[in-house]
């Protein structure tokens, strides 16, 4: 799965699972801008693990990170595994 596919799937999850507004979710948007707090980021790590089959520690997604940045982290884990 290429980076574009991961970021698209991640964006879908942010809307369907977390209720983020669809018109605001884009690769360059940070989790802070989407009003994701520390607990939402923990849940994101859990959902990413289920969806993409990669281990993501609860502190690895951060408020300053962009959706595209999170997708890159997921892809790097997939490449490593």
């Amino acid at each position: 799965m290429g980076a574009g596919v991961t970021v698209d799937r991640l964006a879908e999850l942010l809307v369907s699972h977390f209720g983020a507004p669809a018109d605001r979710v884009a690769g360059g948007v940070t989790f802070e801008e989407l009003e994701f707090d520390s607990l939402a980021l923990v849940e994101l790590a859990m959902v990413a693990q289920k969806e993409f089959g990669v281990e993501v520690d609860e502190q690895e997604f951060t408020p300053e990170q962009s959706v595209a940045g999170a997708a890159r982290l997921i892809d790097s884990r997939r490449a490593a595994s």
Partner: peptide, 11 residues
């Protein structure tokens, strides 16, 4: 330790 507790609680 709130974050791992949250994760473990849900799982």
């Amino acid at each position: 330790d709130g974050q791992p507790v949250f994760r473990n609680a849900v799982t």
